[in-house]
Design a protein around this nucleic acid. Structure first.
Lengths: 250, 250
DNA sequence: TTCAAAATCAATCATAATCTTTCATAAGCA
DNA sequence: TGCTTATGAAAGATTATGATTGATTTTGAA
């Protein structure tokens, strides 16, 4: 067996298993313990895994470096915080809907290597999705050139082809009385339908979103959770009566 | 065994196997170890594979792929000639389907100001469409990252939302017997359905396309015309019995 | 908590496998 | 023939491997 084949085998096993024992690898490869040890040492130096006593463990998913356009985004840190938590909810093999928008865009680097299938209506997500090798589908629809979102009846209808394990939606505002809000009725319709087609539904927001057309009353989304990086106390009380809420902090 | 045959054999084996040992190649080719080593060294210099200790390994991912802009550069003049003629057929207010591909892309600048509505499955058309202020819709579907085309059942289905005055399709090849051909069955399905949903259908090609899954027998497209910049005489005779054909010249 | 046994580890060495370099021969071509 | 290219064989350098040793860490029972 070639050295590189062994290395590849080890990395593949770690994609499935989180950690693996040296003895298992010895049996699987018919190589000696010394050889396996050397393999693990080398792969660790390449940051491909982490050695632990008795074996090796998958490395912590690497922090993505924000591209230039990302840096221009407002509240980037908060968005990334929220996005990272949201991505941590995703499991291998999940089928996801990723809403158009800058917060959901931050999730993409964290999805790398999770073997997920992503459906999106956000044209601006495409580059990152392709770059990270994520299997992707696009909804159809009218191209809103200002935001790069696909909307309209064609967009809503093309959602009917799919069922999602999880959907991740962005919002423009949250109001304890009116629910989640977004200025464009057509975008609202897409969000609403995507949520309905998902087994569970997460709304991503950062603190700045407090404050036009609602796409869902909070209580409409019985399987939903709100992920946010902070919240005024009085709003929090009202909202948490109606939905699961996760407040992410540094 | 010829040198080039060996090279081809090695590359074919690496399409199946990810990596291969020199000893295996020695047995398969009955060449000496030295010869195989030289083969691998040469193929590595051409970036076709990567040498590893004891053998060779498939190269990391996306090396040998000509970028979209590179492809566009080939036969650009011919493509523009064809595209310009095709665009001249478009009337104000028309509803169009614009197939993914580099030839159809050349039509976009000529559509400016014609007040048309364009539906496309070509992601690479988006920038130009938006830039030229053309009202545009995108089909949904699976994203083929290599060509930037949307394909699959979702793409075909989202076509059902529309009816076209004219559709403009690209091809990979034309064969008098087999009809228009394209290597990907999924892309073929989209082209075929778009043609069916159109009042009239134009196939754009340049002379280089003479030569795998056919998307339509020529005679299937009773309302179709082929637009091309040149053609071998014998093929022309056969094809013009089956469809309208326009040969564009300088 | 402490200690000893068991497991795991890093370091070293000898061997085996593979690599590069070099040279000589064979084959194709003008 | 004279030139170029492809090939195979061989020598010495380099790299990978497996076994061994003694150090380190973990485990579990007192």
């Amino acid at each position: 067996m070639l050295t590189t084949e062994r290395h590849q085998l080890i990395l593949n096993l770690l994609k499935e298993k989180q950690s693996i024992k040296i003895q298992e690898l010895v049996e699987l490869t018919s190589a000696s313990e010394s050889t396996i040890r050397r393999d693990l040492t080398e792969l660790e130096e390449l940051q491909k895994l982490e050695r632990v006593f008795g074996g090796a463990s998958r490395i912590a998913q690497n922090m993505p470096e924000p591209s230039l356009s990302d840096k221009a985004a407002k509240n980037l840190k908060e968005k990334q915080l929220v996005a990272r938590y949201a991505a941590s909810l995703v499991k291998t093999g999940d089928s996801l809907f990723l809403d158009a928008g800058t917060t959901t865009a931050q999730m993409i680097p964290f999805l790398k290597g999770k073997d997920v299938t992503v459906v999106t209506n956000g044209l601006s997500h495409l580059e990152a999705l392709i770059e990270h090798g994520i299997t992707s589908y696009l909804t159809g629809g009218f191209i809103k050139s200002r935001t790069g979102a696909l909307v309209g009846p064609q967009a809503t209808q093309s959602l009917e082809n799919y069922r999602f394990d999880k959907s991740f939606l962005g919002v423009n505002g949250i109001h304890p009385g009116h629910g989640f809000t977004t200025p464009d009725p057509e975008e609202a319709a897409v969000k609403r339908r995507a949520g309905e087609l998902s087994r569970s539904c997460y709304v991503l927001a950062d603190q700045s979103k407090f404050g036009k057309v609602s796409f869902a009353h909070i209580s409409d989304l019985s399987r939903s959770a709100l992920i946010i990086d902070g919240l005024p106390d009085e709003a929090l009380e009202e909202i948490e009566r109606q939905t699961t809420i996760k407040v992410v902090t540094q």
